[in-house]
Nucleic acid binder design. Structure first.
Lengths: 339, 339
DNA sequence: CTGTTAGCGCCTTCAT
DNA sequence: ATGAAGGCGCTAACAG
């Protein structure tokens, strides 16, 4: 049994199908009597407009695409939650493009930003490479970058945080507590996905050390995949150094958990024998009493969508850059070093 | 500049548009020369078939809908990851309907299982209520239930686990370790979303107690929202009882974390002074060394999609029930009680 | 205010 | 093997 169409409704109500369409779309130019008659017919037939036909006719997909790497990581989930909740009130559907390989990443950058695929695109944390630029600039749909950037993309709206400053804040917090041997556990600075936050935070880390007159020691910097166990390994290596770090800055809370695990394995008390500070302030951070640099993940998704919706409505002519604040959240994994 | 259409390609290649369509769809009945000519035209024009038009013409949405409550909870994320990865290899897109309110839940049950919306529907953990039955049975699209059930829905395929048995396994594990005062921290057994796993595990909990000759004590059962902090509160209340439980079974790993938190607050050593066992085996469980009952979350999503795809291909005539195994994973939060 | 008509881009017969 | 034509369900422009 096929679903009722607009034609069935028109026949049932004894009106033309144009009128039914107007009722569906809340056009004001329909008399109350006919509107009521049409609505009754709709009820009677259990009619629901076919979204596909609607899209084709409108020449819009009524869909927002979100390109997200590793969407199962807590921080991305939180960003997506912001997207989802904001979009739920709109007429747009959400399509998530989960990127877990380079191939998929390149494919998405090229194929998703197209009129036929989505009316607007959100790109999370994947900073485009030079080869992607022409595709993104040539795209006929608005694109908003969240937690991503590229010098040639000044024409795109963005939602960002100052990761350099974030790295500085975290490091400075340890310095202020009296630490002089400060480690940094991060993603690979040069990684195929072109994630840049670890690199930017590294700059902040170096800056803070410099301005405190603390020489940088390469063996205090561990780089590896963004996994808890990897962070644990890197930390273990660092803790084996004779004059090991007394404080460690991890470039995410997930990695900070790996640092804590390593400390546990070494029988080191946190924060007395080792201070640990993370980044993000995901939910578990509170549970662990983890000191961290909070960024507003949920809001980043929310603001990203809002920017996108505004440019879809033509309310934005020139690109905006929305910089979200960072905040040091001091809990129980950092303490003064009096060694 | 509008995207190229099938007509442009036809003109460019000097063929009819039917031929172009055949090339796109890999129809064997096209000569190699014309096929090549068409493909060159496609390249030249940077043509991509319009999915919306395709859907309308085919009368299919090429979309799978997943109705999932609180999709940000780790266990649901893991299920969705199974869905996503399996679907990525197929021609289907995935639409996630995140349910966080009763209204939204009812709306989804009624509006999503429709030909115009999706070709197939996955429903996670939301066991339909009687009022939903006619909508689901009357739906013109295949539906697969994952972690959900209803006596009147024997006609739908399902992926489930034996939660009663799971509850029994967890409780029996504590009994085997010598515990006699065993608490259970769970969701509200009677909850508006009609989640049933906590209730089923409760039955297993009672069964295990019974067969060990241990009387059930209501004050050892705490019910509340599925939140860490709530589980923590419930546990605190339990630990204040003069002869408090020596072992606690939490109906999820998330809630088990709340139990651990409460134990910490009370200065109780786990597992020496309090044994804790969870359910699910989400990623953090390993980190905590949490003893738990593992269920295959990723696979549940995977199998759900596979069942759905098979019935879309007409390979399934009668409904299947796929029961996934449960496994006790003993780690470090449970120990023998010799009190 | 309302009915009619012409597409939206593609797929699928039906002839050729 | 290929071209032409009809239709998927809806919207929007036009005429009344």
């Amino acid at each position: 049994m096929k679903p009722a169409t607009i034609r069935d409704v028109a026949k049932q109500a004894g009106v033309g199908l144009g009128t039914v369409s107007r009722v569906i779309n809340n056009s004001p130019q329909v008399s109350d009597v006919t509107r009521k008659r049409v609505q009754e017919a709709i009820e009677a037939l259990n009619y629901v407009p076919n979204p596909t036909a609607r899209r084709l006719s409108l020449g819009k997909t009524l869909t927002i695409a979100a390109i997200v790497p590793f969407f199962t990581r807590p921080s991305f989930i939180e960003r997506l939650r912001g997207v989802e909740l904001t979009l739920a009130e709109s007429a747009y559907a959400l399509n998530i493009y989960n990127v877990e390989t380079i191939q998929r990443r390149d494919q998405c950058m090229r194929e998703v930003p197209r009129k036929e695929i989505a009316d607007g695109v959100l790109i999370f944390s994947l900073s485009p490479r030079d080869a992607d630029i022409p595709y993104l600039l040539g795209a006929d749909v608005p694109i908003v970058l969240v937690d991503a950037n590229h010098p040639s993309l000044a024409s795109l709206s963005r939602v960002v945080v100052d990761d350099v400053e974030g790295g500085r804040i975290a490091t400075q917090h340890l310095i202020d507590l009296g630490h002089r041997r400060i480690g940094y556990v991060s993603d690979k600075l040069d990684n195929p996905f072109n994630f840049q936050s670890s690199g930017n935070r590294y700059q902040g880390y170096r800056m803070a050390l410099d301005s405190a007159g603390i020489p940088f020691r390469p063996e205090y910097h561990g780089q590896g995949e963004h996994e808890r166990y990897k962070a644990c390994q890197l930390t273990a290596r660092m803790l084996n150094i004779p004059d090991r770090p007394t404080g460690i800055f991890a470039s995410s809370d997930t990695q900070a958990m790996g640092v804590l695990e390593a400390a546990r394995n070494f029988g080191l008390t946190v924060p007395d024998e080792l201070s640990v500070i993370g980044f993000d302030d995901i939910e578990v951070a509170e549970y662990f009493g983890l000191t961290t640099v909070r960024q507003l993940l949920f809001e980043s998704g929310q603001h990203g969508v809002e920017l996108l919706l505004k440019s879809l409505e033509g309310k934005i002519d020139h690109p905006l850059c929305d910089t979200l604040p960072l905040e040091l959240v001091v809990r129980k994994t950092t303490a003064a070093w009096t060694g």
